[in-house]
């Protein structure tokens, strides 16, 4: 019943169509990049960059209120900070030999601190806006946002199409990737920039607090059942799309924020897969 009403509204309102399309593209991109992030064991980087990117957005909000320059557009500043964050992390890692992971909480704390500071410095900032930065607001996706999302999706797909073999080899065995003629530094830089682009793009849609979850949880589910790389990527995209579409429908119907609902559905999928895996392995061990 409520599905019918959601569909009726979907055909009636442009903003709902934009939101659904944006959601479907995000559902495709997040696990695609997430698989590389999880397998290279740098899951925490997504969280760190999203917080640092938030600082860029907040500085953008502050500066664009002072000077009306295009360069201070919050989304653009978010992208700049996200890319900048990857270099800062890399630089900080150089200072530690055995505590390289310290670079991430340092950058994350810096991002949160700068965000808080510039939000408080920006006069008359709408609490709805700050809320949407934290938890996303997919329903506010405009046609311009949608075009940006489509462009970034195309960029990511072209990048992955041309580097797929190299990415798989790098993820599986970095040393081999080096000796086999792959320019590992360049490939890593490309992956980092793509990650930064995707993260800053997601701030508007799912919010800074949920970006990492959207990239990581579908992959965490898929990795439990995947028996090949391709299979894992495809499964994670399926889980991600299921959670996005159902989260979209449920949150619209229940009039609650979409981002958290999507993540909760993702976690439920993960729990179900864990349970099925547990039951299967206990049945298999009983048969033995």
């Amino acid at each position: 019943m409520f599905l019918a009403s959601v569909f009726k509204d979907l055909f009636a309102f442009d903003f709902l169509q934009y939101a659904l399309l944006a959601g479907l593209l995000v559902g495709l991109l997040a696990p695609l990049i997430g698989t590389v992030v999880v397998i290279r064991r740098i899951s925490f980087i997504a969280d760190t960059l999203s917080h640092f990117s938030l600082a860029g957005v907040c500085i953008g909000v502050f500066l664009s209120k002072l000077i009306n320059w295009k360069i201070f557009d919050p989304l653009f500043m978010g992208i700049v900070f996200s890319i900048l964050g990857t270099f800062v992390i890399e630089k900080l890692r150089g200072f530690y030999k055995n505590y390289k992971e310290l670079s991430m909480p340092i950058v994350m704390s810096c991002g949160v601190a700068l965000s808080g500071l510039f939000i408080s410095l920006s006069n008359n900032i709408d609490s709805k806006y700050t809320n949407s930065l934290l938890f996303g607001s997919i329903l506010s996706v405009s046609s311009t946002d949608l075009i940006t999302i489509i462009i970034i999706t195309v960029i990511v797909f072209i990048f992955i199409m041309f580097t797929y073999k190299k990415i798989v080899t790098l993820c599986f065995d970095e040393v081999y990737a080096r000796v086999s003629g792959i320019n590992v530094k360049l490939l890593q830089l490309g992956l980092t920039i793509i990650l930064a682009l995707v993260i800053s793009l997601f701030i508007d849609i799912v919010g800074v607090l949920l970006i990492a979850s959207l990239m990581i949880i579908p992959v965490a589910s898929a990795i439990l059942i995947g028996d090949s790389f391709l299979n894992t990527v495809v499964s994670s995209i399926v889980f991600s799309e299921v959670s996005l579409v159902s989260g979209f429908v449920i949150s619209y119907h229940a009039n609650v924020t979409t981002g958290p609902v999507i993540i909760i559905i993702n976690i439920l999928i993960l729990i179900v897969i864990m349970l099925i895996k547990k039951i299967r392995s206990s049945i298999a061990s009983k048969k033995k």
Binding site: I39, V168, F172, S180, I223, D227
Partner: peptide
């Protein structure tokens, strides 16, 4: 240069098949 790593040098939990390892290594 061909390199055969130590068995402990890579991620065993990585979901990958022999086909994927070899076809991806062959650029």
């Amino acid at each position: 240069i061909g390199y055969v790593p130590q068995k402990t040098d890579f991620n065993y939990e990585f979901p990958i098949t022999v086909f994927e390892i070899l076809s991806c290594a062959y650029l």
